[in-house]
Structure formats: C-alpha cells, structure tokens
Amino acid sequence: MNQPHFDPVALVPRPVRTGNAFEETMERLLQGLKLGIYSAGSKLPAERELAEQLGVSRATLRDALAELQTAGYLQSRRGRYGGTFAVSVLPEVSAPSRARGQGASADDVEDILLFRNVVEPAAARLAAEATLVPDARAHLLAMLAEVDGAGTDTFRPKDSRFHIAVAELTGSPSLVAAVADTRARVSDLLDRIPLLQTNLDHSHTQHRQLADAILRGDGAAAEAAAVVHLEGTARLLRGFLT
C-alpha cells in the first residue's frame, strides 16, 4: 500500500505573500529549524527542491541561506556529500532587553508589532495628505539621505529618525511621540537579531518608495508602502525571537 507523501515544509505556516519574499523565507526557514523540521545536523533539501517548497526564486533562497549561515544557523559543506546543513546547536538569542523593568516575551513582541502596524501606516497616510511646506519636504529628504547613506553601525538610529520624520510631517505632537516610543521599543528588539544586508537593501528601496508617495501626496500609496516595509521587519523579528 502506498504511503502518503510527507512534505516537511507543510508543517511550517504559509502566510500569504506580502511582497517581502526574502523576509518571509527567512522567517519560515527559522521556524523549520526551531521546530525541528530541519533537525540538528541534518542536510536541508536541495536548493531547487527547497525553493519550490517555499514558493520563492532560487536567488531569494540563496540570499536567505547565506544570511542564515552568517548568523550561525546553517553551515555549508563541500564535496560529494556536501550541501547546506542545520548546525548541531542553534545560536542562543541574546538576553532580552529590559524595557520598563520587563523582558520581551513573545506576547510583548506581538504587542509592539501590532501597535506599530497601526501607528506608523496611519502617520504615513496623514503625512502624505498634509500640506507640506518646502522646509518640511526638505526635512524628509534630508532624513532619507541620511538613512540611505548609513552604514551597518549607524543604520538603526538613522532608520528610526527617518520614520519619526514621517510622523513629524503630520503636525501632531501626540502621533510623533507615539511613533518615537514605538521605534524605541522596536529598536530594543532589533538589537537582539543580526543586521542582514539583504534586508538593509530592501529597507533603502522601501524608504524611497514611502518618501516618494508622501511627497506626491498619495495617502493610500504611502500607507501601503509603510505596511509592506513594516511587515518585512516583523517577519525577521518573529523568525529570530519567537
């Protein structure tokens, strides 16, 4: 009697594609490693097969595998029996940052991401719908240039400053404070995961798309650009931390 085919990746949740293929691939590979679908020391499926299972291009998969090797989750072996292997012991996540006297649990992470996903897209839409004086437009472009030119050592604070600049365009001090507080809490979490070059490149592109939508006054496009941008970061945080 034929046994039903078992696809191990089917055990990993398959969220709807949001445009962040690299970040989604990272999240799902990390889930597979943490759930033991790719067991410690085992060889991952061949690149073509794994790309098909995950529904991504081989180029996207290669980027994700390379980043996970750099982060210490995978190792590459050469030779006849070579390939990509799960490490025997997964890296430990750094100790939780202490914010307001408490560590960041999985619930804390989801709470921060949920609040951020409400506040920042709203700020982006309102910024695009505001009447922007030349100084305001120049301010946004200056913050965009700074984050665009940031290296890995300065990217995260410059990234936060750009997002706060978006909120500043709304003219609402309360909204600026909410975005600033949210960025501080997210930065606390981001300090616990690797800074991935591919995600950095995506962020630069998405920042420009967000700024462009705001400057041309397209509220819907600005909100949508913010949602896509935030979802990429959320996937990485969930993948590494939860």
Rank of each mutant, 00 (worst) to 15 (best):
P4F: 11
P4D: 13
H5E: 12
F6R: 02
D7T: 06
V9N: 01
A10V: 15
P15K: 05
V16F: 09
A21R: 03
E23D: 14
E23M: 08
E23Q: 13
E27Y: 15
L30S: 04
G32L: 02
L33E: 07
G36D: 08
I37M: 00
Y38C: 00
S42V: 09
S42E: 11
K43M: 05
P45D: 00
A46H: 14
A51C: 13
Q53H: 08
L54Y: 02
S57R: 03
T60E: 03
R62V: 02
D63M: 07
A64R: 06
L65C: 06
A66F: 05
A66G: 14
Q69V: 15
A71P: 02
L74Y: 10
Q75Y: 08
S76I: 11
R77I: 11
G79E: 07
Y81M: 04
F85A: 05
F85L: 03
V87D: 11
V89L: 11
P91Q: 10
P91C: 08
P91V: 10
A95C: 00
A95M: 01
A95D: 06
P96Q: 01
P96D: 05
R100H: 07
G101S: 05
S105P: 12
D107E: 13
E110R: 15
I112D: 10
L114W: 14
E120Q: 12
E120P: 05
P121V: 03
R125T: 00
L126C: 12
A127N: 09
E129F: 00
L132I: 04
L132H: 08
L132D: 13
L132Y: 07
A136K: 11
H139A: 15
M143V: 04
L144N: 06
V147G: 05
G149W: 06
A150N: 01
A150C: 03
T154W: 00
T154L: 03
F155S: 03
P157I: 08
F162G: 07
H163L: 04
I164T: 10
L169Q: 06
T170L: 08
G171M: 06
S172H: 06
P173V: 01
A177K: 09
V179Y: 04
A180C: 01
D181N: 09
A184Y: 05
A184P: 00
D188G: 11
D188M: 11
L190K: 07
L190P: 01
L190S: 03
R192M: 11
R192A: 12
I193F: 02
P194C: 00
Q197F: 10
T198F: 03
T198N: 12
N199M: 12
D201Y: 05
S203R: 13
T205Q: 10
R208K: 14
Q209S: 12
L210T: 10
L210A: 01
D212T: 15
L215V: 07
R216I: 12
G217F: 04
D218T: 09
A220Q: 14
A224T: 11
A224C: 06
A225G: 09
A225C: 04
A225K: 06
A226M: 15
V227G: 02
H229W: 13
H229K: 13
L230S: 06
G232T: 05
T233H: 13
A234G: 10
A234L: 01
A234D: 14
F240K: 09
